[in-house]
Computed example of a mutant assay.
Amino acid sequence: MTYAKGAAAPVTPPDIAARKGGAPIVCLTAYTTPMAQIVDRHCDLVLVGDSVGMVMHGLPDTLGVTMEMMILHGKAVRRGLAHALMVIDLPFGAYEESPEQAFRNAAILMRETGAGAVKLEGGTHMAPTIRHIVQRGIPVMGHIGLTPQSVNALGGYKVRGRGAEAQAILHDAQAVAEAGAFSVVAEKIPDILARRITSDIRIPTIGIGASAACDGQILVVDDMLGMFADFKPKFVKRYANLAADAEAAVAAYAAEVRERQFPSSEHVFGETTASAKGA
């Protein structure tokens, strides 16, 4: 579904919650104004994710992302959105200490960026924090399964929820829903578990490496466009290969400069009086 600018009302967290069991919810990340303008025309929800640290800042993981970075990119994305709900990640270290710390930093992100909701990672152990934030007027999206901010404790980016761990992941999803989250991201869990979670909880599930049965899907936009080429997770489908296109364009430019083919006569200015075109 494509939305023309100004043709649809802005999406809110209650709108997303009401989509449970309905038309699939389309979600992508964005970190800049131009990309936000593009995805806004096609998405229901845009996440300013802490994945920005890896795809735009060259960090090895998301642990080095700061509140300042999230605010900077959140402001940029907000300028590019007219329709989609903007959700912003609470970065590592900004919410784990206490519910009070979490609310304080969530309020800062909301106030500084104009986001419509925040997202935080964690299941049963983070349920009291989610409840605390929601009760104070800030909508929360949960995140269970593979939680990248816990990569060191988890021992890497392995699939979560296989075998005996499946019940714990299900309990995480239930706890997040009962705490008042309006939706939950389910990352890198088996298809059968994602289907069970989706049928068992009352809030929409947003899958990434989960199942087509989830209530919606999300990908990192740089992954699906082929802009981030360092590695490709199994769950990513590349709909374009923009990194290769950009490489070819830069190589062509460099060759033309070295051969003095650029700039050509059409790209330089003569001595005539400036025209109405600004020449």
Rank of each mutant, 00 (worst) to 15 (best):
L28R: 00
V11M: 08
G163K: 10
H57T: 05
G145W: 02
G161I: 07
T198D: 03
G226S: 12
M227K: 11
A36V: 06
V77W: 05
N241I: 03
R111D: 15
V236P: 08
D215P: 07
N105I: 11
S150C: 13
I144E: 03
I201S: 04
T273F: 15
G137V: 14
R41Q: 15
A279R: 14
E187I: 11
T129L: 15
H73V: 08
A117W: 07
I206R: 01
R79A: 10
I138C: 05
Q149D: 12
F269M: 03
I144H: 05
I144R: 03
D44T: 04
G270L: 00
A107M: 13
A153V: 14
T33E: 15
V65D: 00
I169N: 05
R111H: 11
R202G: 10
G163W: 12
P24L: 05
T66I: 14
G6L: 11
A164E: 07
H143V: 01
G155M: 11
K75R: 10
D89M: 04
A212G: 10
P128G: 08
I208H: 01
P91N: 08
A210K: 05
A102V: 00
V140L: 12
H143P: 13
S211N: 08
E256C: 15
A84L: 12
D44S: 06
R131G: 09
G278V: 06
I218A: 04
G74P: 12
A177P: 08
G74I: 07
G137P: 15
I25M: 01
A274N: 00
D15M: 10
G161E: 04
L28Y: 01
T2S: 04
E266R: 15
M110H: 11
T205G: 08
T124C: 14
L109P: 05
G53C: 06
A276D: 07
S199C: 10
S183L: 12
L59T: 02
G270N: 12
A106R: 03
A18G: 03
Y3Q: 04
V52G: 04
V268L: 08
I144K: 03
M86P: 10
G163R: 13
C214D: 11
V140C: 11
G58E: 03
E112W: 13
V220R: 02
K20Y: 15
A186L: 15
L109W: 01
A17V: 13
T147M: 08
Q217I: 00
V221A: 14
Y157M: 08
I206H: 01
K5S: 12
T273V: 14
L170E: 13
I71D: 04
A249P: 10
R195H: 00
G207S: 07
K232N: 14
L28H: 00
P10G: 01
